[in-house]
């Protein structure tokens, strides 16, 4: 099974010459980075950055219809189905490029994953360990919620209405957070200069941590209610 291939051959920082025809530079250094050699149209080692890959500005708000259109268009150009009879090396690039395309589409079409990606690429730590810190304004509510959950686990079903109420309040909180995120996305995209953008990203990171925390609460209550057959 699972034959081993040499993958992940990194595109050189500068990609001066086409691997096939030897002409260079295979594509202009300025973005957008072309996936194909401008001389012989051969597929080049793909770049791993999702925004450059889709030839999109590094924005947190994206037009999803445009993203899908690009995804389909790039799929037609890059998919391994199109390279069955190509040289081994071009087949490998096709597989690599399509994996990046698919991974990128999955990340970029989801606002939260998109924001996390931008944060990570900008060097922010978005580790899960932070989810343990209870947002201060929620301390009291979460405390009572956890008590009720414990009671449910020990078989006390009278807490179910209380849990459902908490759940509803968490869900509406999530909606509020999403609106907050949207506003920050717009602010990020409009910010002038790297420092200004980083400042917005730092705020977005905090909002995302809060969001993740609340989502986990909702997931937990759903899991416990299902387990109890309620």
């Amino acid at each position: 099974m699972s034959e081993l291939r040499i993958l992940g051959e990194q595109a050189p920082a500068e990609h001066p010459h086409c691997w096939r025809c030897g002409n260079g530079p295979a594509h202009e250094h300025a973005e957008p980075v072309s996936l194909f050699c401008q001389f012989c149209n051969t597929l080049q080692p793909p770049v791993a950055d999702y925004f450059s890959f889709f030839d999109l500005p590094r924005h947190l708000s994206l037009d999803l219809a445009e993203l899908q259109r690009k995804f389909y268009a790039l799929s037609r150009l890059l998919h391994p189905d199109r390279y069955t009879r190509a040289a081994e090396r071009e087949r490998r690039y096709s597989l690599e490029a399509t994996a990046i395309l698919n991974d990128g589409y999955r990340v970029l079409r989801d606002p939260v994953e998109r924001a996390e990606y931008v944060l990570r690429e900008a060097g922010f730590d978005i580790g899960e360990q932070r989810t343990r810190d209870v947002p201060p304004e929620l301390l009291e509510e979460v405390f009572e919620f956890n008590m009720a959950l414990d009671e449910l686990k020990s078989g006390d079903e009278t807490v179910v209405p209380q849990l459902m109420e908490s759940r509803a309040s968490f869900v509406s909180l999530l909606a509020e957070i999403d609106r907050e995120l949207d506003a920050h996305f717009a602010e990020h995209d409009g910010a002038a200069g790297r420092e200004a953008r980083r400042a917005v990203l730092e705020r977005i990171r905090k909002i995302l941590n809060r969001r993740r925390y609340i989502r986990n609460l909702v997931a937990e209550v759903d899991r416990q209610l299902t387990a109890q057959g309620a």
Partner: peptide, 11 residues
């Protein structure tokens, strides 16, 4: 990496 056949390879 899962290829277009749904088969995994690891590097």
């Amino acid at each position: 990496l899962i290829d277009a056949n749904g088969i995994l390879s690891v590097t």
